[in-house]
Amino acid sequence: MTTNLKPITPAATVRLKIGFVLARSFTLSAFALFIDTLRLASDELDKSGRVRADWQVLGNTRHLIASSCGVQVAPTSGLVDPGQFDYIVIVGGLLKNEHPIDDETVAFLKKAAAKKVPLIGLCTGTFILAEAGLMAGHVVCVSWLHYQAFRERFPDLKVRSDRLFNLDRTRGSCAGGSSAADMAAHIVRLHISREAERNALEVLQIDRARSHLHVQPRKPLAIESNDPRLNAALIIMEQNTENTISIPELAASVGLSRRQLERLFMEKAKMSPAHVYRKFRLERAKRLLTQTDASLIEIALDVGFESAGHFSRMFAKTFGQSPRELRATLSK
Rank of each mutant, 00 (worst) to 15 (best):
D168Y: 11
M266K: 10
R169L: 08
N97F: 11
D293A: 15
A113C: 08
H214L: 02
S257K: 11
M266T: 06
S211G: 07
D46V: 15
G309P: 00
H191D: 03
S295D: 10
A209P: 08
S68H: 07
A251E: 04
E152A: 07
S312T: 15
M135E: 02
H146I: 01
Y277E: 13
V142K: 00
E267Y: 09
S67M: 09
T329S: 15
A233W: 00
V51A: 12
T61D: 03
A274W: 03
E44K: 13
A32H: 08
S225K: 03
V254Y: 11
A222S: 10
I8G: 05
S272R: 13
G78R: 04
E238I: 01
L109T: 00
L16W: 05
S253T: 08
I90E: 02
I18P: 00
P82D: 03
L95H: 10
N199H: 10
E238H: 05
S307L: 08
A11K: 15
L250S: 04
R313H: 05
L145T: 12
L79W: 06
Q260L: 09
S193I: 04
L79S: 05
A185F: 06
R259D: 14
H146V: 11
V254G: 02
V73W: 00
S178R: 06
S25A: 07
P7L: 04
Q321F: 10
R169H: 03
D302M: 11
F311L: 05
A251K: 02
D102C: 14
K158N: 14
L79V: 07
A251C: 10
V57W: 02
M314G: 01
G255R: 09
C69M: 10
E262F: 04
L22A: 00
F280T: 01
H99T: 09
R163V: 14
I247P: 05
A209S: 15
E242I: 10
K115N: 14
C123Q: 01
R208V: 12
L167R: 04
F165W: 12
R229N: 14
R208Q: 13
A200P: 01
A285V: 05
G19E: 03
K270N: 08
D302F: 06
A12G: 06
T13S: 14
R229G: 08
G309Q: 10
H212I: 12
K286M: 09
S307F: 06
D293E: 13
A41Q: 02
R24K: 14
G176E: 01
I236S: 01
D302R: 13
T13I: 05
P155M: 07
N243T: 14
G177S: 13
I247N: 06
T170M: 08
H310E: 10
S68P: 03
S179C: 14
G78Q: 08
I101W: 03
V139E: 13
N226M: 07
L234P: 01
K317Y: 07
E202Q: 13
S331I: 10
V91S: 07
I187T: 09
E202N: 11
E238S: 12
P10R: 02
